[in-house]
Design a binder for these strands. Structure first.
Lengths: 186, 186
DNA sequence: TTTCGTCGGAACGGTTGCGTTCCACCGCGA
DNA sequence: TCGCGGTGGAACGCAACCGTTCCGACGAAA
């Protein structure tokens, strides 16, 4: 099969997803907007959910490694910069919002994004473990809740409220998150 | 018009919304599940968006006043308890997720929930202002980002990840959030 | 040059929900 | 007792999209 057709269908799919939402997404329009026929689409994927699952699991969000900066706060800033790079994209914002709502009804989608969740979890865990190894954090820390803080504030600002995040905001965020995590021990 | 029919249609609407999502929501099914005819529904509302807007703006989320407890952390705990009461409901979780995605496409919905956003913002602002008045926080604090922290972690845990939040978690959250906010000044 | 697979495009029957209209029924106030 | 308005329910024509099938065109490999 011709890969340029596959690519056109792929990007049309996400454009359309961001525009009208997953439930209202029509494969007929996707094919049309890609300048392709429906046959070409159905030859590759059997249904909307199958197409979404396949594409989601293939999207190569190349995450750079986060080098050890020597302090929790600087590590957090690097992590937040990396997270912001992803969450700033308009299409990713829309698709993420839609995806979260859809996952509750379509378990196949959750399976498809599991690799991403695990990659994120691993990066989060790395930052915390480094801080513990440095002695900045006690081993008794509530890692789960600390992990929540590392993501939630930026997600809230960029995706939920649709707000902005400049470098100063990110620095404040890193400082506040470090303070919060330091208070997570019992 | 008979109010019991209106009530039946209202609760069927939200049930259906939580079950299939806003885009896939069919007014035909809503009427059927309410044990009503389509005519009764269309006599009250002219469309799906109109119905959602009207119902959302009428839902009486009676928020209790938050008494001054004497400290930022205790105020935060009271706020989080109040927020958890709302975010724990299954239907509210689903509808909220769906609503956030839909707002990007349907401005009328944003207008409908604006009163809630403002009520929440006011409560958040009150807690911070009290802490400033007490001298717990400097006046130079980044209120916007502090407000983000008050909501985002619990929202992330309960709504996004579908996790739980017991009393101990809430106490940890209050402690961490207080620490974060205290670090929000520049 | 022939062959073979994919291409874009059009059409198929079937399903679903839209918004509207009509119907017989029922309960309440005059 | 009558009349009227709201009721549940069925049906209407219309539009969109589903998943499938068929077509002639095109291009690369043999």
């Amino acid at each position: 099969m011709q890969s340029d057709v596959t690519d056109a269908l792929t990007s049309a799919f996400f454009e359309e997803w961001a525009r009208v939402g997953f439930a209202a997404l029509s494969l007929e329009r996707v094919a049309k907007n890609a300048g392709a026929g429906k046959a070409a689409l159905y030859r590759r994927w059997s249904s909307k959910v199958a197409m979404a699952s396949d594409l989601l699991s293939k999207v190569g969000l190349t995450l750079f490694e986060l080098p050890d900066t020597g302090s929790l706060e600087a590590d957090l800033l690097a992590f937040l910069l990396s997270l912001r790079r992803v969450l700033r994209h308009r299409i990713i914002q829309r698709v993420t919002l839609d995806l979260l709502a859809e996952i509750a009804r379509e378990p196949a989608l959750e399976r498809a994004i599991r690799p991403f969740q695990e990659a994120r979890r691993k990066r989060v865990k790395t930052v915390i473990d480094r801080a513990i190894a440095r002695g900045e954090l006690p081993m008794t820390i509530d890692r789960e809740t600390a992990a929540d803080f590392m993501v939630s504030a930026l997600y809230w600002r960029l995706v939920v409220t649709g707000g902005r995040s400049d470098r100063r905001h990110l620095k404040t965020l890193a400082r506040m998150t470090a303070a919060a995590i330091s208070a997570a021990s019992r």
